[in-house]
Amino acid sequence: MKKLSKKTLNKSFLTWFYGHLTCFSQEHMQTFGYLCAMLPVVEELYDTKEEQKEAMQTYTAFFNTEPQIGTLVVGITAGLEEAKANGEPVDGETINGIRAGLMGPLAGIGDSLIVGTLIPILLGIGLGLSGNGSPMGAIFYIIVWNFLMFFGMKFAYSKGYEMGGKAVELLVGEQAQAIRDSIILVGTVVIGSVAASWINITTALPLPGGQTLQQALDGVHPKLLSALTVVFCWWLMTKKKMSPSLVMLLLVGVAFVGVLVGFFNPGLSY
């Protein structure tokens, strides 16, 4: 009965933690990171070079997912490879089927949860702390993010290894869904605050009667113009399917015309 040692699992995890994207190409994405992460596992489980070669062949298949959440898959395959080496009914094809089946859904969950929610929450709080040039915001982000990710990914790896395919329920079950929705709710609230604190779109257009348009808008709701611009950009991207770069380009046009007609005026001089 072969059993992977703690040391090997740790080495495999650390290799993935650092190296999953260091050699990125459009064609193979995380494949080489995956190969390196599985190498310690394969070398410990199989004695002959031929067996090792055959086992490594499994992991030459394309792999790409959200790397933080995707650590779970690496853990799962380490467990499966161990089962395979022990003669259980698992072969390379089974392993690759599971890998390919998981990478898409996990990328979706990871992108919305980690990149779309956790990072913005932490950055939002960091921005709040860095007012007037204080280093506290950056320091807060560096410590909290790296702490959460190192131990979070380590947890995902060992859960994947211990529980195999069942570990996925940690992420896709009904309870997981409820937790994810709730985290996204916090993220949306924080983003609202970030928008209100950091976006400052004002107009210089005078209105007949001595008031400016800005004062009139402030009377409706403070920062109304900033909120409307966000909704407008969101509408362009979701309903008009524009790319962010195209929206930015469009805004250059909007700014240019706005300046010409006197709607925008930063009012600066050297």
């Binding site: 919305s112 407008f232 969101w234 979701t238 250059v252 700014a255 925008f264 005026n265 930063p266």
Partner: peptide, 23 residues
């Protein structure tokens, strides 16, 4: 003037990219 105005509009794109994911 356009350069500075674009600068004030751009953060709205950043927030909108995010909203696209969660809304």
């Amino acid at each position: 003037k356009t350069l500075f105005t674009v600068g004030s509009l751009l953060p709205a794109v950043g927030v909108a990219i995010l909203l696209k994911q969660v809304i």
